[in-house]
Amino acid sequence: MTRPVHHPLIDVRDLARTFVRRRRIGRLRRTTDTVKAVHDLSFTIDAGEMVGYIGPNGAGKSTTIKMLTGILVPTSGALTVAGLEPQRDRVELARRIGVVFGQRTTLWWDLPLRDSFDLLQKIYRTGPARHRENLGRFVELLDLQDLLDTPVRQLSLGQRMRGDIVAALLHDPEILFLDEPTIGLDVISKGRLREFLRALNAERATTLVLTTHDLQDIEALCDRVIVIDHGTAVYDGSLTGLHQRGGSTRTLVVDLVDEAPPIDVPGATTRRVEGPRQWLAFPADASAAPVVAAVAAAYDVADLSIQEPAIEDVIRELYSTPPAPPG
């Protein structure tokens, strides 16, 4: 009896990557330290998924992305992306993926945006019709029509990021890797970018792997989160599940008209009081509406705002939650 074998688009098994660091001890002697940047890492990603890959700085995020994109060879373990071995098949893989590093642009600084796009058509040897169609569609979705003839150096950070994303997509990649795509962007730019990525995934089933520090990116885009810490995956599942497991909280900041004793409403606990301003914590997976309604009903409220938990806090809480694994 044969069944069709299921091949995930990205298949990572027992992946490890160690770095050797040389260190001086004494005047002449040197010692080498082996640092495990990534170890015992396993996961699979199917075509069409949108996955958030998160973790604190130095957790091994970039190292993983570099291995997935063929920049770095794994020390051990098995790794296939789109059926290819990333580092061995680097050039072939490059045609099938798009990579955007949030803080670095690949666009020609002094030339109009259009010139960078035209060169990419040559580099990827995209058919002219396909290129025109993609360019038209992406430029429309990202609202870049009027900026195509503007030199890149005159673009805002948000516009440039949108340009970089178009650049990474013109050759119809199956997978788009985004490293901190919303870093430094204002709220409107972030929103527009997220909307575009959702549309891209819906229209073309492009698989999305993004690293981010912004939990709202994950909330808006990813059905699935992989949390990496100290080089290995500590969580793989939905964002809601992550909040539940970590017991993470959102914060309702209430500005009252007058100073008052700590607010007492069901479903929330007051963490801090500072004059007329109070901070109320409630579970991150619960709706804010009942809490807001209860506060508004019982107090004279001047203003309200909600703070999302920071990724670092969520992960810290993930650890502080017993029982900790032995060893």
């Binding site: 994109t69 063929g70 920049i71 050039v91 490059a94 990579v99 590093f101 670095r104 580099i123």
Partner: peptide, 14 residues
Amino acid sequence: RTGRLDQMLTKPLP
């Protein structure tokens, strides 16, 4: 140092 080499490694050219 600047990561530009990494960027180039993601392009389908030698």
